[in-house]
Each structure stands twice: as C-alpha cells, then as structure tokens.
Simulated assay, not measured.
Amino acid sequence: MAGTTVDEVMAELAAPEDPKARAVNERHGDDHGVNLGRLRALAKRLRTQQELAVQLWDTGDTAARLLALLVCRPKAFGRAELDAMVRDARSPKVHDWLVNYVVKKSPHAEELRLAWTADPDPVVASAGWALTTERVAKKPDGLDLAGLLDTIETGMKDAPDRLQWAMNHCLAQIGIEHAEHRARAVAIGERLEVLKDYPTSAGCTSPFAPVWIAEMVRRRGGE
C-alpha cells in the first residue's frame, strides 16, 4: 500500500471506531476507540512507510500516532525528534509504544535514557526509567544498581503515578535479574508498599514488587 495518503488512512481509522472501546480506553487516559487488533492489521497492510508515519504523527490524533509507531523506521528518527515526540506523547498507550517500539531500537536510546531519567517532567522521566529497566534486564554492565535502588528508595513513594509505575518496574526487574540485590529490592518494596493493593485479575501477577519478584524467581526455578 505504498503511496497511501494520510487522508485515506484517517478515513480507514475512523471507520472501525467502537464507542465501547473508546469508553474503556478513556478510563486509562487513551482517547481513541480503535480496536488494536484492527490497527495492527492495517499496519501490516501498509508495511514500513517512514514518510507516512511522520505525517500520521503530525496529525496529533492518538490512533494515527499509534499506527505511525507501527509503520515507521525507528532508526530513522534523530535524537531531537525522539525527545520532542516523547514530550508530546501524553496518551499512555502512545507513550508506551513510542518507548518500546521505537526508542529502544534507536541508536540514541542510551543518551536519551540518561537525559530523560533526570527530567523534571515525570512523564518524560518515566520514559528514562523504562529504558533503564531494559538495561537492567539485558545490558546491566556499567549500571550502578545499588545507586538505582537508592534513588528508588527515596523517590518512588511520592512519585506521580506513571513515574512511580516505571520506577517500581525497575525495582522489580533488579530483584528478578540480580540475586545479589534481591533481598534489598524486596525490602524496599515491602517498606514502601507501592502498588501493594493494586487490583490484580485472576491468573495475573501482582505489580507489588515483592510478590512480582518472588513469582518470577519461582518460575525460573528459584535461582
């Protein structure tokens, strides 16, 4: 579907609008009613189109931006472009996909991680913590894990929701992946009690770090 115009795509995005899906999404801060399965099917048909992706992003429409993140070339964005995009991505789903589908694949990821983690905007900072969690799991060499735990211990309890969630994920990942820091990670989680009472569906693991860590370690055979 090379050569598809923005207007054509926007018309197709509007067609499957589901009021019930919009109601559910809006409860989570996402202002769209597009079924994500249909969105992914559309992206598969469009294939990679960087110019179209940029145009879709520039519409500011949440569904269009989600589609843009599926059809873009992550390595085509410059550092300044990604920084501007993350600051403009206020929808939780757009923010999540931008970090996970695009920034993590960018050659600028580490530079942005360092800049964003210390950013005064908690949403931007949460992106930095998400990138840090990725490194904790996959490329921990060079990270000061004890220092990260210090920062989490002093800052997570009173952090805004999205930043708190990202810091908590990092805390759990440190405990899961690094046995030498596990006891302290669990102790921090138990003392701060962040997400301790978070409603968890049957069959799902609680995001409360001590429970999360214990369950993942158990699944790995109690390493």
Rank of each mutant, 00 (worst) to 15 (best):
M1Y: 03
T4M: 14
T4W: 03
T4C: 07
M10G: 01
A11R: 15
A11W: 05
A11P: 05
E12Y: 04
E12D: 14
E12L: 14
L13S: 12
A15W: 07
P19T: 09
P19A: 10
K20P: 00
A21L: 15
A21N: 12
A21E: 14
A23M: 09
N25C: 08
R27V: 11
R27S: 15
G29I: 05
G29C: 08
D31C: 03
D31G: 02
D31K: 15
N35G: 08
N35D: 15
N35R: 13
R40F: 04
R40E: 12
R45Q: 08
Q49P: 00
W57R: 07
T59F: 06
T59I: 06
G60M: 02
A63Y: 01
A63K: 01
A64K: 04
L66A: 03
L66Y: 03
L67T: 05
L70I: 01
V71M: 03
C72W: 05
C72G: 06
P74S: 10
A76F: 04
A76G: 11
L82R: 13
L82A: 13
M85Y: 15
V86W: 11
R87E: 14
D88L: 13
R90V: 14
S91Q: 12
S91T: 11
H95M: 05
N100Q: 12
Y101W: 11
V103C: 07
K104A: 08
A109I: 00
A109N: 06
E111D: 14
L112F: 00
R113F: 00
W116K: 10
T117S: 14
V123C: 02
V124S: 10
A125Y: 04
S126H: 01
G128D: 04
W129F: 09
A130G: 08
L131H: 04
L131P: 02
T132G: 00
T132C: 01
A137T: 09
A137G: 06
K138I: 02
P140Y: 06
D144W: 09
D144R: 12
L145R: 14
L148C: 12
L148K: 06
I152L: 13
I152T: 08
E153S: 15
G155W: 09
G155R: 11
M156P: 10
K157E: 14
D158I: 01
A159V: 08
P160L: 11
D161N: 12
R162A: 09
L163N: 08
M167K: 10
N168P: 04
C170L: 03
A172D: 00
I174K: 03
H181E: 10
H181Y: 15
H181F: 14
R182H: 04
R182K: 06
R182F: 02
A183N: 06
E190P: 01
D197R: 13
P199W: 10
F208V: 00
F208E: 00
A209E: 03
A209Q: 05
P210W: 08
V211K: 11
I213R: 04
I213F: 07
E215N: 08
E215T: 13
E215R: 12
E215H: 12
M216S: 03
V217Q: 08
R218G: 02
R218C: 01
R220E: 13
G221Y: 05
G222A: 10
G222P: 02
